[in-house]
Amino acid sequence: MKKNLLLISILILFSLSPFLTSNNFLIRFLTDILIFSILASSWNIIGGYTGYASFGNVVFFGIGAYSTSILMSNTGLGFFVSMILGGIIAALFALLMGLPILRLKGHYFAIATLGVAEAIKALVQNLNITEGNSGIYLPPPEMSVDGIYTFFFYVTLIVLALLLFLTSIIFKNKFGYNLKAIRENEDSANSMGINTTIYKSAAFSLSGFFSGLAGGIYAFQQGFIKPEPVFNVLITIKMIVMSVFGGLGSLFGPLIGAFTIETISEFLSSYFLVAHTLFLGIVIILMILFAPKGMLDIFINIRKKGLSYFRKNIEEHRV
C-alpha cells in the first residue's frame, strides 16, 4: 500500500510537469517517455501477462500511425476520431493476425510476428494509399507552440492512464486470471474450461488497440510519417526491453522500464551523436546478462543476497 501511494504521488507530480517547467524540450522528452510507456504496457499485456512474446508489436504502432494520418489528410476527420479509429483498426488487425498465429508457440510465434510486421512494412512501402516510401504529411495542429507541447503531453498521459486503469481492473478479474493461467500452462487452462483462443486474441487485440493509439499520437505529433521509422523493429525491441527491465507482468514495471531506458537513450544520444545506438546495444546486452528478471527483482533480492545475486542468476541460466 505504501509503495502504491509513493508511485501515485510520483505520477501526480509527473502529470503536473507542464505547469512546473516551461522547457518545451523537457516536456517533449516526457511525452516520449509516456508514448513508450503505452507501448511497453501494451506489450506487457500479451508478452508479460499472457506469455506470448510478440516480436512484431510495432506493426500496431505503425498501423495506428498510418490509419490516423490517412484519415486526417484524406477524409478531413479530426485528430481524436482518427486516433481512436486508428486504434480500432490496429485492434482488428491484431485479431485477424492473432487467430492463425497465436496457435504457434515460443520461437515460432516470435518469428511469425516479426515476419508479419516486416511484411506489413513492405506492403506500406508499396501501396498508393500510403504513398510508399515518400511518406504522408498530416495537417498541423492549430495551437500555439507551447500549447502543442502541453496538448500532446496530456493526450498521451490520458491514454496511458486509461490503459493502466483498464489493465489494473482486468488483472483483478477473471479475464486477467485466465490470461495468467494460459501463460503458466496452456493445456491445463484449456482443460479447466478456458477458451484459450478467445482469451489470447482478446489480449492481443487490447495490446494492438493501445499501441495503435500511441501510433496515432506519434503521427500527429511528428506531422509527417514514413514506413521505415514507424515500422522499425527497434521499437518492438525497446518495448520488450522496457517490460523486462521494469519487471514482466507487473502494472508499473513497463513505466519504470520506459523511464529508465528512454533516459539512458536520451543521455547517450546527447553525448554520443553517432554511437548512441551502439551503446544502446551494450545496455541491452548488459541488462539481459545481469537483470533478466528486471530491476525490481534486483532491488528486492540484492539486499538479501548481495552481489551473489548476479552470480546466482547466471548460474541458473548457463550450461
Binding site: 495468467k180 493461467a181 501463460r183 503458466e184 500452462n185 493445456d187 491445463s188 487452462a189
Partner: peptide, 8 residues
C-alpha cells in the same frame, strides 16, 4: 505429469 500454474 502434473500441470500446475507454477507462478501463481
Amino acid at each position: 505429469i502434473v500441470k500446475p500454474f507454477p507462478g501463481m
